[in-house]
């Protein structure tokens, strides 16, 4: 029977994958990314912060370089530098003389350029390709531990400030009238986005981090009618994209980040069509 043969083939195939420690580590790390990016991505979509996220991601290369130069490790370097730039962007956004996307464009690309110069120093041996596109083979067990600590911090911070975050998103003055300080909330969100960028760098790669923030949330948007449901659905979509994307990347020898993003994007188009279909009914 041909079906039996196929089933056997699939079983052997899956066995090969789940016993490969590299792939398992990649998937576990990828799920960590999906857990936070689904949650934070909703705020990025609601508040139209995608360019802001992109700018933070751009400064991560400089962080990686500095982390290696100072010997404090890539992750700490990234969190440290991204946080400084994130706060700088926040501060610059208050200025009214130039529009914020112009300011972000200038500073973000300045950070990127400096970052490329720093990592091109002879002392630093970095695989630029892995940084730009993500490489699951670089994930170690220690990385995974660090990632899940980041995940727990980020999720705890968001959930304990949940209704304040949603209200500031809807209207800053309304939030002020309930005694919420929007600046505090914005700094909080910047901190969490920084954590997400640092987490995603190895798996997704610098160039596509924003995609991981936006695509699952945008996919979920059409399917839900409450903020909480959007977070849950976007997280599930993110996890699925990560698992299936890493599977594809291993199977066809593709870079992991782009594979994950392609899977997510296909889901986005499907949900878009499904949404139109729902509305017609």
């Amino acid at each position: 029977m041909p079906t039996k043969k196929i089933m056997k083939k699939i079983t052997i195939h899956l066995e090969k994958i789940i016993t490969d420690p590299f792939i398992i580590r990649g998937i576990i790390a990828g799920i960590a990314v999906a857990l936070v990016s689904g949650l934070v991505g909703c705020f990025v979509v609601w508040r139209r912060l995608s360019y802001y996220g992109e700018s933070i991601a751009h400064s991560s290369l400089l962080g990686a370089g500095i982390g290696i130069l100072l010997g404090i490790g890539i992750n700490f370097g990234v969190v440290f530098v991204c946080l400084i730039f994130g706060i700088l962007f926040l501060w610059l956004q208050q200025s009214k003389s130039l529009s914020s996307d112009t300011l972000l464009g200038v500073i973000a690309h300045f950070a990127l350029a400096i970052g490329i110069i720093v990592i091109s120093f002879n002392k630093i041996k970095i695989d630029l390709h892995a940084f730009l596109f993500g490489d699951i083979l670089t994930v170690s067990s220690a990385d995974i531990l660090g990632m899940y600590i980041g995940v727990i911090i980020a999720i705890t911070l968001i959930l304990s400030n949940w209704s304040s975050l949603v209200l500031v998103t809807l209207d800053e003055d309304l939030a002020k009238s309930e005694g919420i300080n929007p600046l505090y909330v914005n700094v909080l969100l910047t901190t969490i986005m920084t954590i997400v960028v640092a987490l995603s760098l190895q798996i997704i790669g610098l160039l596509l981090i924003t995609a991981m923030l936006i695509i699952p949330a945008a996919t979920a948007r059409r399917l839900v009618n409450s903020p909480e449901a959007m977070v849950i659905v976007s997280t599930v979509i993110g996890i699925f994209s990560v698992i299936f994307g890493i599977y594809l990347s291993v199977e066809m020898d593709l870079p992991s980040g782009p594979s994950i993003v392609v899977v997510g994007s296909i889901l986005f188009f499907l949900s878009h069509m499904f949404g139109i279909f729902l509305k017609k009914e």
Partner: peptide, 10 residues
């Protein structure tokens, strides 16, 4: 409100 279109809320 600042933002109403992007966020689903009843």
């Amino acid at each position: 409100l600042d933002i109403i279109k992007t966020i689903p809320i009843k």
